[in-house]
């Protein structure tokens, strides 16, 4: 018998506040990938609604709310962030709870920080609350969500946690220092 201890991806790296921007790690009870098989899209969406009250998200969108959110994550695929899901017939599901580094970036300058890391159009009129994108975050493929007026959710692979925090830190320092010029 053994007792395994759990460590989060950003263990020892976060939280971090520089200037008006703060990064914190988010832990979800579970992250489950959900990919309906052919012709099963609406049945899977209905089953998801029953389990967590949110439909299967459309491209570039999220459904649900904090701690029970489904985010579109690519062709025919969503990541369900929050409660562990019971098996849904008609869909491929995998446990991704430990696969992702999830952080929240929040504060007045959050959008300016992100503009240094991603080529995505982040204008508030374009990337609205509830929107999500698979995009590049500082050389890494990731998931970006706008979860509030000045709050964003970022996900990159677990192994890249240190790089994400490093790149965010440099961008946050730069934004803060520009404000002091």
């Amino acid at each position: 018998m053994t007792d395994l201890l759990a460590k989060s991806p950003c263990d020892g790296l976060l939280p971090l506040t520089i200037g008006s921007v703060t990064v914190t790690e988010i832990a979800f009870d579970a992250i489950t990938s959900l990919a309906p098989f052919k012709g099963q899209e609406s049945a899977v969406s209905d089953a998801l609604k029953v389990q967590m009250g949110a439909a299967f998200p459309k491209p570039n969108r999220t459904t649900g709310k904090a701690h029970a959110r489904a985010v579109w994550s690519g062709v025919g695929q969503a990541l369900v962030l929050g409660p562990p899901l019971a098996p849904i017939p008609g869909a491929a599901m995998t446990d991704q709870t430990d696969a992702w580094t999830c952080v929240a970036l929040e504060g007045d300058g959050a959008r300016d920080v992100l503009a240094r890391l991603t080529p995505l159009d982040l204008r508030p009129s374009v990337f609205k609350q509830g929107h999500a994108a698979r995009t590049e975050i500082a050389h890494m493929g990731g998931v970006l969500m706008r979860t509030g007026e000045n709050r964003y959710g970022l996900m990159v692979f677990r192994s890249m946690a240190a790089t994400l925090v490093h790149d965010l830190e440099i961008a946050m320092q730069s934004v803060a220092a520009r404000g002091r010029l």
């Binding site: 690519g74 698979r134 990731g142």
Partner: peptide, 8 residues
């Protein structure tokens, strides 16, 4: 290939 995007 939309590699760091949707994988399409």
């Amino acid at each position: 290939y939309h590699e760091t995007g949707c994988a399409a």
